[in-house]
Each structure stands twice: as structure tokens, then as C-alpha cells.
Design a binder for these strands. Structure first.
Lengths: 108, 108
DNA sequence: ACAAGTACCTTGCACGGCAAGGTACCATGT
DNA sequence: ACATGGTACCTTGCCGTGCAAGGTACTTGT
């Protein structure tokens, strides 16, 4: 029951995290998923719908590239509006984080 | 679209915040909702299912009390297991927050 | 030939916040 | 007397999004 907190926490934050990763260089879904799995326990099945959504919203663009180890990789690249989204989402996150910390107060 | 980040962020965190508020003293749903609305923009409709859930999980107990300004208030009080849940949720939150900060890195 | 790793993707499910609506009680204003 | 607005309770139906489980296909090592 309580472990579902972990799951719920991720909602909304994952997009921001992916944007942040992409801001450090183009990358492909499988690798992003691995990093996120390690960092916050994201499941692989989550990344593909997410990337699709982000592409539909114009936050990322894609290009294919051979890899020599499996099928060709679909690289994602941050667009300008993706970079803007990252900026605003980070500031929202900071506001939120601050509010939560304030509520938790000394309970921390 | 992007504003839904705000919504998603709350998922999972609200329960912890309510527990934290109650750890500072018994309170009733309407007041909790008001505080949370101010702090993180929670809608009133959210609190009642949430309190019900928490009661079912044994995290809180309730008692009625007259108020003289409207219907009697249903006060919620943290149980022992509620206090424990708060503790463990806070530590999960800290871990998560740290992981996110690490991903954001210099993008902050 | 076969397993294991890489890399892509889909489907159905569950969780939980939201908006909108509804009830009822009390005080104040007109 | 009646309406308004605040307090305080609650329900219903909706929607977004992460998850688990499953599926495809290519490449390399045994």
C-alpha cells in the first residue's frame, strides 16, 4: 500500500527529468529508461508513451541512427520549446518542493 | 497541458502532507483542505476520499465535535501507525527529492 | 541453432486528484 | 421573512499517467 507512494511520486516529475537528461545531450529511449530506472525506479514500459507524448507536444524531435548492437536507435533531441518547458517545470518543481518542505517543517 | 504537472506532482505527496499536519494537532477535513489549498493548490473534493482512505488504512481515527458555525466537525487524529507511516513516507520523500535534484543537476 | 542482450513498441489496469454538484447549518443584511 | 454567503460535510464521473506483462526484431557469442 504505502509503497505506492513511490509510484505516485513519479507522476509528473518524469517528464521533467527526461527533459533535464536531454538537455545534456541527445539520447535514445532505451538508455534514458535505464538511467531513470536506476535513479527513481522507472519501468521501461513507461518511457515510450512518455516520449510519444513529448514529441506530440513538440518538446522533442527525433532522428534515427544505426547502432551495430540491435535495431537502429531513435534519438531524441530537445527542441527550443522543450528547453523552455524544462525551465518552467523546474521552477514549478522548486516551488512545490519548498511548499512541501514547509508543511513537513520540523517533522523532517 | 503542462499545467497538469502541478496535478501530477501532488499524487502521493498529499497523504504525507496531511499526516504531517495532523502530527501537529488534531484537525478537521475542511480546515486541512483550506491549508493545503493555499500551500499546494489542492481542491476540496480531494480531501474527503483521502481522509476516508487513511481511516480505512488505520492511519487516523475520528471524533465529532460541535462547532457553532455550521455542522459538527469531524476531527481526525493521528494513530500510532499513522505516525509511523509519516516517518517512513518522509524518508522516502527525501530519497526521491535527492534523486530528482541529482538528475536536474546544474539545470537548476 | 540458440540464448542473451539491445532496442523498439502495445495493451489493459489501477491509482488518485479534479471539477462539479449536493446537503445542511448558522449568521447577517434587507 | 428571505436571500446571501460562509462553514462543513460528502459523492459522482472523468482523466492522466505509471506499471506489468507481453510482443517484435536485430546482433553477438557459444
Amino acid at each position: 500500500m504505502t509503497e505506492s507512494l513511490q509510484i505516485q511520486l513519479k507522476k509528473g516529475v518524469l517528464e521533467m527529468c527526461v527533459l533535464a537528461l536531454l538537455s545534456k545531450g541527445d539520447n535514445y529511449a532505451y538508455d534514458i529508461a535505464s538511467r531513470m530506472a536506476e535513479a527513481v525506479g522507472m519501468g521501461e514500459g513507461t518511457i515510450y508513451p512518455l516520449m510519444r507524448r513529448m514529441q506530440n507536444e513538440g518538446l522533442v524531435s527525433t532522428y534515427l541512427q544505426e547502432s551495430g548492437s540491435g535495431p537502429p536507435r531513435k534519438y531524441y533531441k530537445l527542441t527550443k520549446s522543450g528547453a523552455n518547458a524544462l525551465k518552467s517545470q523546474v521552477s514549478e518543481w522548486v516551488v512545490f518542493e519548498t511548499a512541501v518542505r514547509k508543511i513537513l517543517g520540523d517533522a523532517t
